[in-house]
């Protein structure tokens, strides 16, 4: 069995994966092929099914996990990762969405400033399937989030949002969206706040293959530089080989507006409190993209805790 995982349990349609020893009940459809690999098949159910990854790793161990996730035709799944990664980690997720399948993924992770943490996600979507992806990160010594989306069939769609709030940490965010079939849509929104001597990057590639007419693709990335030493690098890349597409992209980063900070401090709150309010305003736009109320609350909590 996996060295890192000590418990996997199914409870009311929720699959709970833990590394501390609690009750264990391994569902038949889940099996570990070899160390660190987990295969999960999700079939349609009456209720929303959810996988909760809730690990709390030691700072002197490297946590490795690879999950193969297949969401079958018409099945819906929520994936929630609220883990605290105290040590190094490598987490790889390979997902396949069959026809009409839905995946909503929320990663609200806390990393250790001095560690190296990698997250790779490769997602392939078939006809009319949809994936909503939310990634929150506070950065670490080296923090990589790499997502590849393959829109392989008509009417497949991707909505991706990322927020990185870092305090003298680094975060590299790479999102590659490949439109490999016609009439697929993607919407990618990335926001970051950099404090102290943080370095944050966002590389957003949109690829549209030559036969992929009626593609709709939007990408927006915005950065807020709080620390004098912080750096933000937003790089949108477009590789579009079809004319019948609607694509837009925008990238902008800058410092908080001095007039706003002056207004706030002139009312007797400290510069730091004023900046925090400004950040709250900057990120508030982001919440409009989350329509799941419970997750919206979690996201707001995450942001206020890391702010």
């Amino acid at each position: 069995m996996n060295k890192n995982i000590s418990s996997i349990a199914f409870k009311d349609n929720n699959l709970i994966i833990k590394n501390s020893s609690n009750s264990i009940k391994i569902e038949k459809s889940i099996n570990f092929d070899k160390d660190n690999e987990l295969h999960i098949d999700v079939s349609p159910a009456d209720q929303t099914q959810r996988i909760v990854l809730d690990v709390d790793t030691h700072d002197d161990e490297t946590f490795n996990l690879k999950i193969f996730l297949k969401i079958n035709e018409n099945a819906k799944l929520e994936f929630l990762d609220e883990s605290t990664y105290k040590g190094n980690s490598n987490f790889e997720l390979i997902t396949k969405l069959e026809k009409n399948a839905c995946l909503e993924s929320y990663k609200l992770n806390k990393f250790n400033k001095n560690k190296i943490n990698n997250f790779y996600h490769d997602c392939s979507l078939l006809e009319s399937s949809s994936f909503k992806d939310y990634i929150f990160s506070n950065g670490s010594k080296e923090n990589l989030n790499r997502t590849t989306i393959n829109l392989n069939d008509i009417n497949s769609s991707y909505l991706g949002s990322g927020v990185a709030i870092s305090d003298s940490t680094n975060s590299n965010n790479v999102v590659e969206i490949r439109h490999n079939a016609k009439s697929s849509t993607s919407d990618c929104f990335f926001k970051t706040v950099a404090r102290g001597n943080s370095t944050i990057s966002f590389d957003g590639t949109i690829f549209v293959d030559n036969h992929c007419s009626k593609t709709i693709s939007n990408q927006v990335s915005k950065g807020l530089l709080i620390g004098k030493e912080s750096k933000i690098n937003l790089v949108p890349k477009l590789e579009i080989y079809n004319d019948d597409v609607q694509c837009s992209h925008g990238a902008a980063s800058g410092q908080p507006d001095a007039k706003t900070l002056f207004y706030l401090t002139s009312r007797g709150i400290s510069k730091t409190e004023a900046e925090d309010l400004y950040i709250k305003g900057f990120l508030s736009e982001f919440f409009d993209t989350i329509d799941n109320a419970q997750m919206m609350t979690k996201a707001k909590e995450y942001i206020s805790l890391n702010n």
């Binding site: 007039k259 706003t260 709250k280 305003g281 900057f282 990120l283 508030s284």
Partner: peptide, 13 residues
């Protein structure tokens, strides 16, 4: 206390 001629908008708050 200064009452501003042009008060500033703070979205999200």
């Amino acid at each position: 206390f200064l009452a501003f001629q042009y008060p500033i908008e703070i979205p999200g708050v």
